[in-house]
C-alpha cells in the first residue's frame, strides 16, 4: 500500500536524509512510503515538544523513547527509519481494519474465568470469522486473526499461567497496554488447558521461547517433537518428563499452530542403547548442562 510521511519539525539536513532513505526502501518496508512536502501525511515524524499537524493519523515521536506509539531516535539510520515506518504501518493497518470491518463477528459469552473454558472457546472460533470478542463485563479479550493480535483488559490474568516452575518470558512490548501477538494468547490458553486428543503429533515450528512462557522441560520436548512424530505418552517416556508437562506443551503447540496431528502413526522409533561416541557425547552434554546450571 502507498503511504505518505513527512517531518516538518526536523532540520533540513534530517529531512534530506529521510528522503534519501525513502528512495532506498521500496520492498524493505511493509508499505511503500513517499515523502509529502506539503499537506497532511499518513504519518508525521514529530520532534519532542512539537505538536503534530491536525488530521495526522499516526505520529512517529522523534527523539522521545518514552512516547506511546512509534518512535524514531537520532542519529537517523536507515534501520531505525524502517522500524518506525513499519510500526506506523501496523497502526494504520489496525485503524483500517477497524473502520472497514462490515460487521464485527462477535462471539459474546460469559468470559471464562478458567483457562480451560477460554481454550475451548478459542478452539471453537470459526475459521471464517476474523474477530473474536469474549467478555464478561469486567474482563474482555478481543482477538483478530487478520492482524494476529489480541487485546485484553488484563494482560496475564486473562490466562493465569504463572506458577512455580515456570519461566515467565518477558512479554512482547505493545503500543497499547495489554496487547500481544495472538499466538501468545493461544499458546497460554492451550498450555493451561493441557488437553490434547489422543494421536500422534509432530512439531512444525519451534515456539519462540524468548517470548512465550514455558516450563524448563518444554525445550527438550520441542527438540523431541521436532525430530519424531510421537504420541504424548511415548514422548513422556522417551524424554523422561512428567505426562502433564507433555500435555501442556502439546496443548499450547496445537492451539498456537506449532504442532500438527499426524494422519497416521509414524514409523516406530526404536530406542537404542548409547554406545561408543554416542555415549561419550551424551555424557558430555550432561556435563555441560550441569556446568551451566541448565535443567537436565
Amino acid at each position: 500500500m502507498n503511504r505518505t510521511v513527512n517531518a516538518p519539525g526536523l532540520t533540513d539536513k534530517e529531512v534530506m536524509l529521510i528522503k534519501s532513505y525513502l528512495t532506498l526502501l521500496p520492498g524493505k518496508t511493509r508499505d511503500d512510503w513517499t515523502y509529502l512536502d506539503s499537506g497532511v501525511a499518513d504519518a508525521e515524524i514529530v520532534p519532542a515538544g512539537r505538536e503534530p499537524r491536525p488530521g495526522t493519523r499516526v505520529v512517529i515521536a522523534y527523539g522521545d523513547d518514552n512516547a506511546a506509539g512509534p518512535t524514531l531516535c537520532p542519529p537517523l539510520r536507515i534501520a531505525g527509519v524502517i522500524g518506525a515506518l513499519d510500526r506506523a504501518s501496523a497502526r494504520l493497518q489496525g485503524e483500517a481494519a477497524e473502520a472497514t470491518s462490515p460487521m464485527v463477528a462477535e462471539v459474546r459469552a460469559a468470559m471464562p474465568s478458567d483457562p480451560a473454558t477460554l481454550a475451548r472457546r478459542l478452539r471453537a472460533w470459526p475459521q471464517d470469522q476474523t474477530r473474536l470478542l469474549l467478555s464478561d463485563g469486567t474482563l474482555r479479550i478481543e482477538a483478530d486473526r487478520q492482524l494476529q493480535r489480541y487485546r485484553a483488559s488484563q494482560p496475564l490474568s486473562a490466562v493465569p499461567l504463572s506458577q512455580s516452575g515456570w519461566t515467565e518470558a518477558r512479554s512482547a512490548p505493545g503500543e497499547l497496554a495489554h496487547e500481544g501477538a495472538l499466538t501468545e494468547l493461544l499458546w497460554r490458553a492451550g498450555v493451561a488447558d493441557a488437553q490434547v486428543d489422543p494421536g500422534f503429533y509432530r512439531l512444525r515450528r519451534w515456539p519462540d521461547f524468548g517470548r512465550l512462557p514455558h516450563r524448563p522441560s518444554f525445550v527438550k520436548l520441542a527438540a523431541y517433537f521436532a525430530r519424531h512424530g510421537s504420541s504424548p505418552w511415548a514422548a513422556a517416556k522417551a524424554v523422561l518428563v512428567p505426562q502433564p508437562d507433555v500435555d501442556a506443551f502439546l496443548g499450547g503447540c496445537v492451539m498456537a499452530g506449532f504442532a500438527t496431528r499426524l494422519d497416521q502413526p509414524p514409523a516406530q522409533v526404536e530406542p537404542r542403547p548409547a554406545q561408543g561416541a554416542d555415549a561419550g557425547l551424551r555424557r558430555l552434554l550432561t556435563t555441560v548442562r550441569r556446568r551451566l546450571g541448565l535443567a537436565a
Binding site: V219, A222, A223, Y224, H228, L285, L292
Partner: peptide
C-alpha cells in the same frame, strides 16, 4: 545453548 544441547541430545 539449552535449545542447542536439546537438539544434540535428540540426535543420539
Amino acid at each position: 545453548v539449552n535449545a542447542l544441547l536439546s537438539q544434540l541430545e535428540m540426535t543420539l
